[in-house]
């Protein structure tokens, strides 16, 4: 009888040890955009490798809509147990909150875990445009305020925010045509219906290689290793430092030990040759930042955009 009780206590004891072992069930990664999109491809390419180090499957869940804020809300309001994560760093954390009221705080609602990648935002013109560099464009735009037209992927998108920051730093006024997504703006640029289009590196790569469009500048602080020929806005003397980031965050309040475990496992996956190779193929710039640095970067981008939106 006693032996049986001891046995039971032993079993229960073991079970509670196992319950402490994290992770004991699959980890869900929410993506705020459709399957097949940029954020989704990064999530899947990474999740595939990461689950080898997590010891549990990493399941990608697409919950697209409202510029990624539906998925962000879902994660922000979930239990901070480390099992629910989000691919963040784009519109849902950087911009959306400045243009309309969100049911979560774009920064304080999350625990940053690790940045995976960054995507440069390029300012493009037609290849036959008369401006050799961004300074010449600014000079022309200053002369005739309101004449030039730029396209973006939508009102309140990162592309729109880029042009707001650039416009303020350079002291120029332009007309804005928002499109639904990046492709519309590129078509309008090629067709001569707009003068400038902001597009991600991957979107504009093929067109600039074919010499149909020219990238005047990149909005990041440093030149992109994928497009080392394109100067930064900083180099031209305009104080803009903005990029689309992709990293993993969880809801605010994930326990320290779980955060540490997640970060360490994910960092191993980040350096794994399989992930490195996939990123090279996809034209994604791997860009690691740890929890603190990623958090600082997210809030810097957020407040910087908030600044110019409030003033504009």
């Amino acid at each position: 009888m006693l032996a049986r009780r001891d046995f039971l206590i032993g079993v229960i004891g073991m079970a509670s040890v196992r319950a402490d072992a994290f992770p004991s069930k699959p980890i869900r990664v929410y993506v705020g955009f459709s399957a097949g999109g940029g954020a989704d491809i990064i999530a899947r390419a990474f999740g595939d490798v990461a689950q080898r180090f997590l010891g549990q499957p990493m399941v990608v869940i697409n919950r697209p809509g409202a510029s990624g804020t539906i998925a962000a809300r879902e994660v922000a309001l979930s239990e901070p147990d480390g099992y629910t994560l989000l691919i963040a760093g784009g519109s849902e954390t950087a911009c959306a909150g400045h243009f309309r009221k969100l049911p979560y705080h774009p920064i304080r609602a999350f625990t940053p875990i690790m940045r995976l990648a960054r995507l440069g935002l390029l300012i493009n013109v037609r290849s036959d445009a008369p401006w050799a560099d961004v300074k010449e464009f600014v000079a022309a735009a200053r002369k005739e305020p309101g004449k030039y037209i730029y396209a973006s992927a939508g009102y309140g998108s990162l592309a729109h925010a880029t042009m707001l920051l650039f416009g303020e730093a350079a002291g120029i006024v332009m007309k804005h045509l928002p499109f639904s997504g990046g492709a519309g703006g590129l078509v309008a640029l090629r067709g001569g219906h707009v003068d400038v289009t902001v597009a991600a590196e991957s979107e504009s790569k093929a067109l600039s290689e074919a010499l149909q469009i020219r990238s005047l500048a990149v909005a990041s602080a440093e030149r992109s290793p994928l497009r080392p020929d394109v100067p930064t806005l900083h180099e031209a003397g305009f104080d803009v430092d903005l990029e689309n980031q992709k990293g993993l965050v969880g809801p605010a309040g994930i326990p320290r030990n779980r955060l540490q475990f997640l970060h360490d496992a994910l960092e191993k996956a980040f350096h794994h040759p399989d992930f490195v190779r996939r990123c090279r193929r996809l034209g994604i710039e791997r860009a690691y930042l740890g929890p603190e640095a990623f958090g600082r970067s997210l809030s810097r981008v957020y407040s910087q955009i908030g600044h110019v939106v409030r003033r504009g």
């Binding site: 491809i41 790569k205 093929a206 067109l207 290689e209 996939r278 193929r281 996809l282 034209g283």
Partner: peptide
Amino acid sequence: LIQGVTPGPL
């Protein structure tokens, strides 16, 4: 892109 092919004029 995953297959290493960039569709485009080139």
